[in-house]
Amino acid sequence: MHEMSLALEIRSICERELAKLPEERITALGVDVGAFSGVEVDTLQFCLEVLMSERFGGVRCEVVREPGAATCVSCGLEFKVERAPFECPECGMFARGVSGGQGMQLSYLEVE
């Protein structure tokens, strides 16, 4: 949906990091995308590959989906969740809220 503008943002962060490493060339990057961030992993991957190759040539883009964590309202079990509804694997009740899985971060660059 707005993956292209996010990919542009990621590229800007890469440029800032690379400015600190003037002798180096970027070869790969890793992005963690929360399962509930509303961002499509495949679309972001595609946009990143387009934008990064445009600026830097071949760069391997690894976009990883991070699950959130939910707590069951009934038995208190904490479990990882990727999509709604959040049914507790232990007792089948529903989980209250999700912690994590909402954001996105540029995790690493690889340079040589």
Partner: peptide, 17 residues
């Protein structure tokens, strides 16, 4: 020359955020 991994861990906030 081998690649070196540089940890960044910077949050990506869109301009909208």
């Amino acid at each position: 020359m081998s690649a070196e991994r540089v940890s960044v861990k910077e949050k990506v906030l869109s301009a909208n955020d």
